[in-house]
Design a protein around this nucleic acid. Structure first.
Lengths: 157, 157
DNA sequence: CGTGAAAGTCACCTAGT
DNA sequence: ACTAGGTGACTTTCACG
């Protein structure tokens, strides 16, 4: 990842289109941004090498997979030291329900997005995998009613 | 999206491999899960039609795009009624800093993941786009130290 | 940095078993 | 489900402005 902080209008357009549909073919992408396919391939490779494009992720529907209940768990850890935190992070990351994990500033230390099969499954997860651990002093559970994605992420200015 | 709640071990393997690398070719995917390419194409199409696979998303690095500061904003809205909430959701979703938005149960109503250029940009966002709105009664800002993805999302059991 | 053409690979469809 | 064949589209490379 180099310090690629130069983006011309073509780069921005590529990022916009690709974030809207990552499965677009290079041909169509080139046509959409108004350059030749080979040039476009080069641009995208450059964005990839530059660390701007990290990869492609599959968007799956948790409810179609039998995990219709999503929740954020706000977790407080004490004492908040490396020897305790690092195994905890690994433990949380490897739960099959965990979708994302964030280390935060604020009253609580971690925020975990989980997808559970039902409310009983969520309760089991909280009780057995979180509050049962001695270093976790508090877990606040917030159910997700609905989620939205933001628009394409672009450079500021 | 039909009620596709039957997944055999091959489906699970496909979901695992695809979530690990969504850009894999159908040939390689077929080889990885041990079936013929034509069969594999059919399986993936079925998962797509069944609403399990929603699409492909580009993974971008906010810091490489000049937005190195990420934060969660926990937002309380009062009164919490549709005529106020729906325009607010649209306003938040269309901010260029917004990466994701969640409507939650709990003391606060919304959680917003944002990516800002610097701390001053974050302050401007909070003050001008959030607390300035009369229906927002409280915004709690939590900086993101670090984030991790969970493993591949699979059916429970 | 951009283009156009050429070569190899792949997705995709259709049958047959 | 797999195999096989066939077509068109696609990625990728390269020599050249």
């Amino acid at each position: 990842m180099r310090e690629n902080l130069r983006f011309d209008p073509v780069d921005l357009q590529i990022l916009r289109v690709l974030q809207n549909d990552a499965r677009i073919t290079n041909r169509d992408l080139a046509a959409a941004v108004g350059i030749a396919p080979s040039t476009c391939l080069d641009r995208v490779a450059r964005l990839r090498e530059g660390g701007v494009i990290l990869g492609h992720a599959l968007r799956v529907a948790p409810e179609a997979l039998g995990r219709p209940i999503q929740a954020f768990l706000s977790v407080r850890v004490q004492p908040h030291r490396r020897p305790l935190v690092e195994p905890l992070v690994e433990h949380i990351r490897t739960r099959p329900e965990t979708r994302a994990l964030y280390h935060l500033t604020g009253p609580d230390d971690f925020l975990v997005l989980v997808a559970a099969a039902d409310v009983a499954d969520l309760q089991r997860l909280v009780l057995d995998e979180f509050t049962a651990r001695p270093e976790i002093t508090r877990v606040q559970t917030m159910l997700v009613f609905q989620e939205w994605d933001g628009g394409p992420l672009l450079p500021p200015g």
